[in-house]
Design a protein around this nucleic acid. Sequence first.
RNA 1: GUCCCCAUCGUCUAGCCUGGUCUAGGACACCGCCCUUUCACGGCGAAAACAGGGGUUCAAAUCCCCUUGGGGACGCCA
Length: 456
Amino acid sequence: MDIITRFAPSPTGSLHLGAVRTAIFNYLFTRKNKGKFILRIEDTDQERSSLDSLNQILDSLRWLGIDFDEGPYIQSERLENYRAIAEEFVKKGLAYRCYMTSEEIQQLKESAQKENKVYKYPRTWRDRTDNPPGLDYVIRFKTPDNKDIKFYDTLRGNININSDVLDDFIILKSDGYPTYNFSTAIDDSEMNISNIIRGEDHLSNTSKQILIFNSLDKTPPTFTHVSMILGKDKSKLSKRNGSKSIEDFKKEGVLPISIINYLARLGWSHGDQEIFTLDEMIELFNLDNLTKSPAIYDESKLSWVNSSHIKNIENKELIKILEMDFFHGIDVNQALNAAKEKAKDLLALKESLKFCKSEEVSLDNEMLESISTKEVRETINDFYVESLKLDSFEKVEDIKHLMNSFLDKKNLKMKQVALPLRIILTGSKVSPGIYEIISIIGKEIFNRRIKKYLEL
RNA sequence: GUCCCCAUCGUCUAGCCUGGUCUAGGACACCGCCCUUUCACGGCGAAAACAGGGGUUCAAAUCCCCUUGGGGACGCCA
């Protein structure tokens, strides 16, 4: 059977982590099975949907590298279809018009609450045949009585829900827009979706959608309801308990692959492996290795995953991402290699390479003060003289030897030379090791920076 | 309240389906030590879990039931 999947966000805000993970699972599953991946925008809430959110979602997905084979299909552009089907349902006696106003329903809900009961629509219009002219109406689905609604979930097995816990739910709102359960089921059937992978919060909605599938005379897809991602406080992820948007991560120097790796690993596993390339994940992904229990979002793990991927990233790729200029004479590859080793994110990495951007470095007062003593000046001068013996700074080993023999000769501690040297050469407290720094900037820049300091 | 789902270290998880190899493995974080040229990186080590109670069985983290706990749904939100 051909695999067709979809990711169906609603454009009512930026992409949150749970949605992104759903997208990732769908993506991995589809690519693994050489299927078709569809993007569908569920914007049937006129009030909350916005073009801004839509663009933001599209941008985030693009940045993450999650690409689609079809779409985006926009539900608000398919309204005629939903309306026609709703009308057809009415004609067939599967649904009916309900003229009850929102105010009336509000009242029913309030009195139900007073009696400590749960509101349920009293089916007032279910069997009425009159159509009061000029009044707003909704179309409700005729939910059958005491019927077992069954479906299969690859993660949770056979699920059985009795229709009596369901209401005569609305399928078409009074503004002519479909409700979620209706349009989702229609699109999933019309787009021939074979597998629905989505959050567990949709598990109880599924019964309603099954009812729609049945009425449409279509076989429902195979479901996989993935567990939720929770915040540190074990409640639904929100800004308060640490949830961020994809834009936030981008700003904080997190690589797309790190997010994908971390999120995929939250709820999915392959033995003891923690770090995966995209290709590996596609190769290894399997619905059977998903976890059923909810997972708590842990930023420090993400940070570790990110630093691991930074270590692995190709320099060519890294240069593109950093959008950074290197001063000529800088050994760019060596600089990148050294910086990658210890950076926890791209911001830190960029910061540690600041000394590679221009001919000179700027020093703040505190730094200047720490290197302006007579002893330091002499030491640096001596080291400079010593360094003249070396024709090339290309090899880190040579510099190391140079340093060691210098320390021996002068009977100095590493600290006494390396600390001021680092400040003079980089103007920073965050940077690669001192031998690497010297090698990276090369003899020319080294000489220039040292001379400038000695002339101060 | 009703219905549905879930339950292994603080966190993510392996093991569960196909009971014995589990005095429960790995990773992140934490703590300690080492390396050291700041910040870091790295290396080594420690501590840390089968929610509770009943069954079934020679044997249960693994199968069954109950309790408890957590999550979700019950919208003219998706």
